[in-house]
Measured scan of single mutants.
Amino acid sequence: MDLSALRVEEVQNVINAMQKILECPICLELIKEPVSTKCDHIFCKFCMLKLLNQKKGPSQCPLCKNDITKRSLQESTRFSQLVEELLKIICAFQLDTGLEYANSYNFAKKENNSPEHLKDEVSIIQSMGYRNRAKRLLQSEPENPSLQETSLSVQLSNLGTVRTLRTKQRIQPQKTSVYIELGSDSSEDTVNKATYCSVGDQELLQITPQGTRDEISLDSAKKAACEFSETDVTNTEHHQPSNNDLNTTEKRAAERHPEKYQGSSVSNLHVEPCGTNTHASSLQHENSSLLLTKDRMNVEKAEFCNKSKQPGLARSQHNRWAGSKETCNDRRTPSTEKKVDLNADPLCERKEWNKQKLPCSENPRDTEDVPWITLNSSIQKVNEWFSRSDELLGSDDSHDGESESNAKVADVLDVLNEVDEYSGSSEKIDLLASDPHEALICKSERVHSKSVESNIEDKIFGKTYRKKASLPNLSHVTENLIIGAFVTEPQIIQERPLTNKLKRKRRPTSGL
């Protein structure tokens, strides 16, 4: 017993010596996670971090007073192994002897410093981030199933929210409404489509400006004509009531908005009720001829604005009016007729031209339509002016008669200019590109209106002035400009410049 007691005391002394060697000089306990400095002193990692955080910048070693920084600290694995072995020896000594260790306080702390507990403390002390800490805590505590279930439920809930957000973003663009038309193969669909197009076009005519009305009406008319041609002859009974509906809707729209509806009346003529396609083609032919005449008058307007600064050229074209007008009339009417003589009366030419125009518009179905009313009214106005011209010709002399006839021709041009508003800008460009020769010939008609105004002003003063002067240069210039014009009389060319000069002198006297 005595020997055993001596041996136990010796073992205890050895353990105490080893414990003092492996103590931390700051906390005076076994080193936890030993860290060595540049001066080869060993301290606990937790104690050194606490010391360095007390001051900004480098701190001093507690043993040798040298500078220490966080970067200079290094882990010493050898001392950590020695500490672990010492703890194992102490545990074995207690089991063999059955005696508690003399320094129970220190031993209890040593026992608490088992490797499992050290790992837990290291995970908390090290600044490795929240995710690494959570992982280490889960690994160190596998015995708690409640914690695992809560963490898994949190992760699953987070994943569910992310997935639901993604699915919502994908589903939202798919919620856009999609309209699908289910059509049938019955023959009544074509008639319904035609009526739908006509009503939609009328609404567009009321909303859209004048520049786009003609294009819309032309497209709708083409669509309706194609649909009529596709149907068989057996379905004509269905077409006639639908066309009557079209007429009623167009008349109502014309009564409500007459000014807006006139812009599309000329282009919509071939959508009118037709028994066969031949009647629609004839109407299209007549409309094309009318559009040609209207576009020519538009060309004359532009030329008149350009040549208004040259009064000499405008005056020299006075007698070329009849010849150029004959050529335009021959090209406007498709019928083959002989040219009228140069010395014939211009009023007779106008009456013949009106007689040619009237039969074209005397179809029984055309008179029933609303768009032809505008053309009939313009023709009636022309006839009224010609009836007035006959009365004026009986009273005035030959020279005054010529000037009045020219004035009436200008009035006719004004009437025809009203129809110019109905034609589109695209048709003007096509006419100029296809028929430049006709445009040059028809330019002379509009330029002549300037000389007509001068004659009217001469009649106000009650006299006409003449001068025997020749202007050969002007006649040559005008002959080169206009290709299809005829030779003019030299006496009238000489008379016109004198009248304008005298007018300039006598205007201030009349004002006084």
Rank of each mutant, 00 (worst) to 15 (best):
D2A: 14
A5C: 11
L6E: 12
L6P: 13
L6D: 05
R7F: 01
R7I: 13
V8G: 03
V8Q: 10
V14I: 15
V14A: 05
A17L: 01
A17V: 06
M18S: 00
Q19P: 01
Q19A: 09
L22Q: 00
P25N: 01
L28R: 14
L28D: 15
E29H: 02
E29C: 12
L30C: 11
I31F: 06
K32M: 02
P34W: 01
C39M: 00
C39N: 00
D40E: 05
H41R: 00
H41C: 01
H41P: 00
C44Y: 15
C47L: 03
M48A: 12
L49T: 14
L51T: 13
L51E: 07
L51R: 12
L52V: 05
L52W: 03
L52R: 02
K56T: 03
P58M: 11
P58S: 04
S59A: 07
Q60E: 15
Q60F: 00
Q60K: 14
C61V: 00
L63C: 03
K65A: 13
K65P: 09
T69N: 15
T69C: 15
K70E: 05
K70N: 06
R71C: 10
L73S: 00
Q74L: 01
S76C: 02
S76V: 03
T77I: 15
F79H: 15
F79C: 08
S80G: 12
Q81N: 14
Q81T: 10
V83E: 00
E85T: 15
K88Y: 15
I89L: 14
I89V: 05
I90Y: 13
I90T: 04
A92V: 02
Q94D: 13
Q94R: 04
L95T: 15
L99I: 03
L99F: 11
E100S: 12
E100D: 02
E100I: 12
Y101T: 05
A102Y: 03
N103K: 05
N103Y: 02
S104R: 06
Y105E: 06
Y105G: 09
Y105C: 06
Y105A: 10
Y105M: 06
N106I: 02
N106E: 10
K110H: 14
K110M: 11
K110C: 10
E111W: 01
N112A: 13
N112P: 11
N113V: 10
P115L: 07
H117L: 03
L118N: 09
D120K: 14
E121H: 05
E121V: 02
S123Q: 06
S123G: 09
I125L: 13
Q126W: 10
Q126S: 13
S127E: 05
M128Y: 12
M128A: 06
M128F: 07
G129W: 15
R131I: 11
N132M: 14
R133Q: 08
R133F: 00
R133H: 13
K135E: 10
K135Y: 05
L137T: 11
L137A: 14
L138W: 14
L138R: 10
Q139K: 11
E141A: 07
E141W: 03
P142H: 07
P142Y: 14
E143S: 03
P145R: 03
P145T: 14
P145H: 08
S146Q: 14
Q148M: 08
Q148H: 11
E149H: 12
T150W: 02
T150G: 11
T150E: 12
S151R: 10
L152N: 13
L152K: 02
S153P: 10
S153R: 07
S153A: 03
V154Y: 15
V154W: 01
Q155A: 06
S157C: 09
S157N: 15
S157Y: 13
L159H: 02
G160I: 15
T161D: 07
T161C: 12
V162R: 06
V162G: 08
T164C: 09
T164M: 14
L165Y: 05
L165D: 06
K168W: 04
K168A: 10
Q169V: 07
R170S: 08
I171E: 09
Q172M: 14
P173N: 02
Q174K: 15
Q174W: 04
K175V: 07
T176P: 09
S177M: 13
Y179E: 11
E181M: 14
E181N: 10
L182Q: 14
L182P: 07
S184E: 07
D185M: 15
D185W: 04
S186C: 06
S186V: 05
E188H: 10
E188S: 09
E188K: 08
V191I: 10
T231G: 00
V299W: 04
